[in-house]
Design a binder for these strands. Structure first.
Lengths: 351, 351
DNA sequence: TTGTATGCGTTATCAC
DNA sequence: GTGATAACGCATACAA
C-alpha cells in the first residue's frame, strides 16, 4: 500500500507538506502544491483512515446491530441509516444477530458483535429490533451510546418506535365509518406489550362508536398465517359472524382472505379485512389489502439523526413515536346488510 | 479511552507483558499473568483494533456494496455474508447505493463508497446487485478484489449468480407435465440478458415436449404488477387463450391471479400460474403460488467464501451459478379439457 | 520471565 | 513556506 512517504518522495517534498496540501491545514505555495497533487494522482494515494483516526483520536464509524436483517422491517430502517451516515462521513459496520435462526436470543453473538464494535472504536450503536418487542434484558450488555429502533427498552433509553395505539384506532375507525358493528380481531402474540396497545387503540375506537367487542370476537394469534387461517375460519363460522376482521399483520390478513374464500365469502362485499405493516403481500394480494403503513424509513432516519445528536451532547427525547398511516386499498367495503346469512361451507379446510 | 499503558500501570508491569498475556505470544509467569488479567477486567480494557491493524499491517474488514438493500433479494444475501464473516473475524462495512431512488445509476455514490472502503483498508468487496443485471459499466471503478453477487460483470470477474435457463425450463416442464399445451409467458424487461436465458430455458422445455409457443403468447413485461395485469387480461381474452401462464416474477404472477379473478377464471382449475423468486407474496397469495426459489442465502454464502479464498490466493471459478428449486404450491393444476370456453368478462378492468 | 525501544501511517508542533 | 520530529496505541525484536 502506498503511504504519505511515497508521495512525499515522489513530489520531492516532506510528508508534512503533503499532509498540508491534502488537509489544507497550512498555506502551501502553488508550485509545490501542484507537484504534490500530481504525485497524489500518479500514485493513486488513498490515506489510511485508521492511522488518521489513531493520531487524531477521532473515530467515525457507527455500528448497526440488526436482530434480523431478513425481517420485513429491517431493510428500510438500515437504508435510512446508511443514507444519513453516508452524508455525514460516517462508516457503518453491520452486525446481524439472525435471531430467527436461534430458538432463543443469542447473547453470545451480541457480545461478540459488541466487542468488535468497541474494538473498532465505533462512536455509537443503532440497535434495530425485528418485532417491536422489548429488549431491556440485553440492555446492560451495551456500553456504547445506543438508540433503539423498532423496539423498546428501558425508560432511560433512547427508542424510536411507532404509535401502535393510534394506528389500531385508525383501523377500527375506518371499519366503523364503513358501517361495521361486528368487528373481529386477530391479534399478535399477547406476550408483547405493543399488542396490548393495539388492542387498547382498537377498543378505544369501539367505545367512541358505542360498539361492544364480544370476547369471542377477539382471538389471540401468534403472527402466523397458519393460526390466523384457523382463527378466521372459526370467526367466520360463528352464527353472528363479524362483518370485518382486523388482523395485526399482513400475512395474517392474507390468511383471513384465504379463509373467506373457503367460506365463499366475497371481499369486501361480504367481509372487510384490514391488515398491518404494509408489507408487499398486502399490495399484491387479491383483492389488495387495506393496511397500516409503518414509517420504517423515517424510523431509521430519526434513529440516525438522534444518535448523532446524542454524540454531540444534545438532549433528545427519550421515547420518540412516529405515526402510522392508513393505506386504503380494496379489502374494506361497506358493512353488508344481512351478513350472518352468508353461506358458510368448508370452513376449516386449509387451501 | 483506556489503553494498554493504563492496564500496564495498573498491573505494575510493562506494556509488553500486557500484550503478551493478551495475545498469548510469550510465556508469562502465572503470578504476573493473573495480575494483568485482573487489571484487564477492572479497567474493562478493549484493544484498539485500528492501532493493532496499523502495527501488524493486517486489516480485517470487508465492504459490502448493495445496489438496493430494500430489494427482496438483498437481505438474505447480506445475512449470509455477515454470518460467514462473523465466523472468520472480519468486520463488514455496509454501503447502500439506493439505486431505486435514482433515475440513473449514481456513480458518485459508488465512488464515495469505494473511497471510504479503500481508506479504511477493506480487504475486498462484495457487490450485491438488485436485479441480476450486468454491471460491467462500473467495473473499472473498483480497484479492490471484488466478487459480484446476484449480478453479472465481465468474463474476467468473479460472479455468483443462479441458473436462469434451468429454472425457467423447470417451470415450463412442470406445466407440460400437468398437461398444458398452450402456455403463456410474461417476461421481465427484455433489455436484461438473463431474461433471454429464461426465455431460452422456457423454449427448450417446449421444444422437448414438441410444443409450439405462438408469438402472441409471449408478452414483454417490465417486472411491474400493473403491466402484467394488463397483459394477463389480454392473454386471457384471446380466443384460444393459454391454460397456464408463467410470469417471471411473483408480483407479476399475483397480477395474473388478479386478472384471472376479473375474467372469472378459477385457479388452478381454469388457469395455472407459476411465478419466480419465491417472494413472500407468493406464499401468502390466494391461492398460494407455485414459484421458483432463488438460493439467495447460498449466493451470499458462496460470495463470502469465494472472496476469502481469493484473498488467500486460491484460484476459484470465475462464474459460479447456483440452481434454483421449484416450490410447488397451489396455483398449478392439470390442464382443463375445454379451456377456451371459460367465461370471460370485464377483462381489462383493474381491480 | 520481563522490560525497552522501534515503527506502523498519520497529524501537529515546532523550528527553520 | 517548508521540513524534522513527536505522538497516537499497539506488537515485537531485542536487551536485560
Amino acid at each position: 500500500m502506498i503511504t504519505i512517504h511515497d508521495v512525499a518522495e515522489r513530489a520531492g517534498v516532506s510528508i508534512a507538506t503533503v499532509s498540508n496540501v491534502i488537509n489544507k491545514t497550512k498555506k502551501v505555495s502553488p508550485a509545490t502544491a501542484s507537484k504534490v497533487q500530481d504525485a497524489l494522482k500518479e500514485l493513486n494515494y488513498v490515506p489510511n483512515s485508521m492511522a488518521k483516526s489513531l493520531k487524531t483520536n477521532t473515530y467515525n464509524s457507527i455500528g448497526v446491530i440488526a436482530e434480523e436483517i431478513s425481517s420485513f422491517n429491517t431493510p428500510p430502517i438500515i437504508d435510512a441509516i446508511c443514507a444519513y451516515f453516508d452524508l455525514h462521513g460516517y462508516t457503518v459496520t453491520l452486525c446481524n444477530l439472525r435471531s430467527y435462526s436461534h430458538s432463543e436470543y443469542d447473547t453470545a453473538l451480541l457480545r461478540s458483535s459488541l466487542n468488535l464494535l468497541e474494538a473498532s472504536r465505533a462512536r455509537g450503536i443503532i440497535y434495530v429490533g425485528a418485532n417491536s418487542g422489548n429488549v431491556s434484558h440485553i440492555r446492560h450488555l451495551i456500553q456504547l451510546p445506543v438508540v433503539f429502533a423498532y423496539c423498546t427498552a428501558s425508560p432511560e433509553d433512547h427508542t424510536i418506535t411507532y404509535d401502535n395505539f393510534s394506528a389500531a384506532k385508525m383501523a377500527a375507525q375506518l371499519l366503523v365509518r364503513r358501517g361495521h358493528r361486528r368487528i373481529g380481531l386477530i391479534t399478535g402474540s399477547l406476550d408483547q406489550e405493543f399488542v396490548h396497545q393495539r388492542i387498547m387503540g382498537f377498543r378505544a375506537a369501539m367505545v367512541d362508536a358505542r360498539l361492544t367487542l364480544p370476547p369471542s370476537f377477539i382471538t389471540a394469534g401468534d403472527w402466523s398465517y397458519e393460526l390466523s387461517y384457523e382463527q378466521a375460519c372459526r370467526l367466520l363460522s360463528m352464527p353472528d359472524r363479524p362483518t370485518a376482521i382486523f388482523a395485526m399483520n399482513d400475512p395474517m390478513a392474507c390468511a383471513v382472505i384465504a379463509a373467506a374464500h373457503q367460506c365463499h365469502l366475497r371481499i369486501p362485499e361480504d367481509l372487510s379485512v384490514i391488515g398491518f405493516d404494509d408489507r408487499s403481500c398486502s399490495a399484491y394480494s387479491y383483492p389488495s389489502i387495506t393496511t397500516l403503513h409503518i414509517p420504517l424509513y423515517d424510523i431509521g432516519d430519526l434513529a440516525a439523526r438522534s444518535l448523532l445528536r446524542m454524540l454531540s451532547g444534545e438532549k433528545i427525547d427519550m421515547d420518540q413515536q412516529l405515526p402510522c398511516s392508513l393505506v386504503e386499498r380494496n379489502s374494506v367495503g361497506d358493512a353488508p346488510d344481512v351478513p350472518n346469512t352468508a353461506p358458510i361451507k368448508n370452513a376449516g379446510e386449509l387451501s
